[in-house]
């Protein structure tokens, strides 16, 4: 960490605004650029660390970061005000940039422009035997239909669980207590198993 960042960090920890703390200090485009890149790098790494486990790709995130970079440059053209960006402002800017990228991506897909393969598609998967693949495809489709039949709250928690979200993450996303989340998850999974059993899909259904 260079002296500029160390000082800025110290000011932040001390609860003082960067701009007040940096009064009288020389400002240069390089310093602003370093501040911006440092900010964006930390943002990117933090988001990716959280999102990668749940299918967030580098590609989508990089687009969002690029959009955010442009927005911040436009909002603070060559100014050290950039250094005083609050977490709240940065969040709003990041959300706006993300929404912009999402809309653009959807528009591209609707107009038939080829998309970059998603994370799941670029990840090598275990190759099942052809007969097994057929059976599993059938089972997967039946499972999806069974999940569709669950009540909305149980369905949401079961879907999140089956997509790999931890109970705490589910509770945080839905705004529920840990107890409520656990309860709905167990009931939802029980319901799901009962629905599958009705369709003749029991414990030995998977090869």
């Amino acid at each position: 960490m260079d002296r500029f960042h160390a000082f800025s960090r110290a000011c932040l920890v001390a609860g003082l605004g960067y701009s007040r703390s940096l009064e009288g200090m020389p400002r240069s485009p390089d310093a602003v650029s370093r501040t911006l890149e440092s900010l964006l790098q930390r943002y990117r790494e933090s988001v990716l660390r959280i999102g990668r486990r749940h299918g967030l790709s580098d590609h989508l995130l990089d687009e969002a970061v690029q959009e955010l970079r442009i927005r911040l440059w436009r909002a603070f053209p060559g100014s050290d005000q950039l250094a005083a960006v609050s977490p709240g402002y940065l969040y709003r800017a990041a959300v706006t940039a993300s929404l912009m990228v999402i809309r653009r991506r959807r528009a591209k897909r609707e107009s038939g422009v080829e998309m970059t393969p998603r994370f799941e598609e670029t990840t090598p998967a275990r190759e099942p035997r052809p007969d097994q693949a057929f059976d599993e495809s059938e089972l997967a489709e039946r499972l999806m239909r069974a999940v569709d039949e669950l009540p909305a709250a149980r369905q949401a928690v079961v879907r999140l669980h089956l997509q790999g979200y931890h109970r705490d993450e589910i509770a945080g996303l839905l705004g529920w207590s840990e107890a409520k989340t656990r309860n709905l998850l167990y009931r939802g999974l029980d319901d799901l198993r009962a629905l599958l059993a009705k369709r003749g899909i029991g414990p030995g259904a998977v090869v």
Binding site: V47, G51, Y91, V95, R118, F119
Partner: peptide, 19 residues
Amino acid sequence: MACADCREELELLRATRIV
């Protein structure tokens, strides 16, 4: 949670919020 594209988009927004 049944659509990979929407899940990725939700994840981008969720991770941003957590940060």
